[in-house]
Design a protein around this nucleic acid. Structure first.
Lengths: 108, 108
DNA sequence: CTAGACGCTACAATATCTGTAGCAACACGC
DNA sequence: GCGTGTTGCTACAGATATTGTAGCGTCTAG
C-alpha cells in the first residue's frame, strides 16, 4: 500500500505545503472519492451496494478509498453499512451545489 | 491518449449513466484537476507558472488536464496564460466553501 | 543571432487501478 | 448440525494513468 492517506495536518502526496486545503484536494482528487461521497449522500450503503452504485468499480480500490475516507473522518461503518459522519455530511454540503451546476453545464 | 474527456452529454469512464453530475465528478476526480482550478481561482497563470504552483507536477499530465478542462469549457488560454472562463468561475464558486471546511477539518 | 520564456510533446520508469477470484465471519432457514 | 446467502475485505496479474527528464518549435527582447 504505497499510497499515503492525507491528513489535515500532515503534508501530502503532491504537496509539501501541508496546507489543509491541499490535503483535502488531494484526497478528493483520487478516483472514486467524490463519487463515493456522492452515493452516500442520503443513505447508508453496504460495501456491496456501494460497489453496484459505483458502476461495479473494483473492490480493491473501493476498499482503499473507504479506508482513506474513514481515516479522514468523513465516513464510518455502521450497522447499516457505510455512512457519512457528521463531518462527512458537512463536507458533502460544501459541494452539493455541484449537482445544479452540472445540470447547467450539460445544457451549454 | 487513451483517456476520454468527459462531456456533460456523453457517457464517461466509470459511468454508463451519462448523467452530467457523474461526468463532472469523473473529471474533477482526476489527479490535479481540482488543484488546477484552485490555483487559477484568482489569477491567470502561464503553463510554467501553473507547473510551479502545482509543486512541479509533470508537464505531461498537466497538459492533459489543461486540455480536458479547456474542452469542458472551464478554462481558456488567454494572453496572460490560463484562466478560468465564466463557467469555470461558477464551478469554482460551487466548491469554494471547501477552503473553510478544510480549515475546520484540520482542527478536529 | 543569442537568450530566454512560451505552450507543448516523447518516452521510459513507476505508481495506480481494474477485473476476477476467493477468503473468513456471520446470519438465515432447515 | 448443514447448506445458502450476505457481509467486509484481500490477492494477484494485467491494463492504465502518472511521473520525471529531456527537448521540440515558436515567439519576444536584447
Amino acid at each position: 500500500m504505497p499510497e499515503r492517506v492525507p491528513t489535515a495536518k500532515r503534508s501530502v502526496r503532491g504537496s509539501r505545503s501541508g496546507r489543509p486545503i491541499m490535503a483535502l484536494l488531494d484526497l478528493l482528487g483520487r478516483r472514486w472519492t467524490l463519487r463515493i461521497l456522492w452515493e452516500l449522500r442520503e443513505t447508508a450503503l453496504t460495501s456491496r451496494a456501494l460497489r453496484t452504485a459505483c458502476d461495479e468499480a473494483s473492490p480493491t480500490i473501493l476498499q482503499t478509498r473507504l479506508t482513506e475516507l474513514r481515516e479522514a473522518g468523513f465516513i464510518e461503518l455502521t450497522e447499516n453499512g457505510y455512512a457519512l459522519t457528521g463531518l462527512g455530511k458537512e463536507l458533502f454540503q460544501t459541494f452539493a451545489p455541484l449537482h445544479r451546476f452540472a445540470e447547467r453545464w450539460s445544457r451549454r
